[in-house]
Simulated assay, not measured.
Amino acid sequence: MFAESVRIAFLKLGIPASVAYLLFISSLFGSFINIPIAEIKSYVPTIKVSEVTFFGIRYVVPYLDISEDITVVAVNLGGCLIPLSVSLYILLTIMKTVGIQGVLRAIIAVVVASLVINSVSRPVKGLGIAVPTFVPPLVAILLALILDTNKPAIAYISGTLGTLIGADLMNWRKLKNIGAQMVSIGGAGTFDGIYLSGLFAVLLV
């Protein structure tokens, strides 16, 4: 059922069924592949203890120390790179069929979606950046209806790139405060917001 929905969404974007299934399978298996791209260092106060002996009596003395935390930032193949590639393909298609005006509308949609999604995104300690599930596809649908041109393409691009830019890239400086050993952009792969928001938006317009 889910695979069929993905096929229908890609068909509405002008992508052949055979390629749609290939993208679906690639995203599914690609969700297990995280490619490190950067390391973020942060310094946090930590309470440690040391033992001292005074007149033969051992005491435990707490003291404040500064420890270094390293967060590895990675991009997920299935949840980020593949949707990003599809978005770039759609932009090129818009350029060829509609022209620069269509591309400008798509860019406007991405900018608006990024700002809205960033306003509701929140860093979650030990996890990453969280966004309410319904917000990206809803924003993408509204933008597609308002711009009233090439609705499936606008919905997919704004839902995908808007989530990538608004939730992840615009919160880059907050990643060091999350406290996770690794933060993966698009990390949940096929079921990640970046992947699903674009597809859901296409299905609903």
Rank of each mutant, 00 (worst) to 15 (best):
G102Y: 01
E4C: 01
V49G: 02
A74L: 10
T190S: 10
I146M: 11
L127K: 11
A74N: 06
N150Y: 05
D65R: 01
L115R: 15
L104Y: 14
T46S: 14
A153Q: 08
L145A: 09
V60A: 05
G186L: 10
S67L: 04
S42H: 04
W172F: 15
P152I: 07
V98G: 01
A140L: 12
S18E: 15
G30F: 01
L203F: 07
L175D: 00
I25R: 04
I185H: 03
N171C: 05
R173W: 08
A38G: 02
V49F: 13
T97L: 12
P16V: 11
I40S: 01
E4Y: 10
F55R: 13
V103Q: 02
L64A: 04
C80M: 11
E39R: 12
S67C: 03
V19Q: 05
S121W: 11
V49M: 07
V110I: 15
I146W: 14
S87V: 03
L92V: 05
G186C: 07
K48G: 06
I194P: 02
I33L: 14
A106W: 04
V124T: 05
Y89T: 03
P123D: 02
K12D: 02
G166R: 13
Y43A: 04
V72R: 13
L147M: 10
K96Y: 13
L81W: 00
D148M: 05
S26D: 03
N118D: 11
L196T: 15
L23A: 03
A9V: 08
I146H: 06
A106P: 02
P45Y: 09
I25V: 06
L104P: 01
D192M: 08
A38Q: 02
T93L: 12
L196W: 05
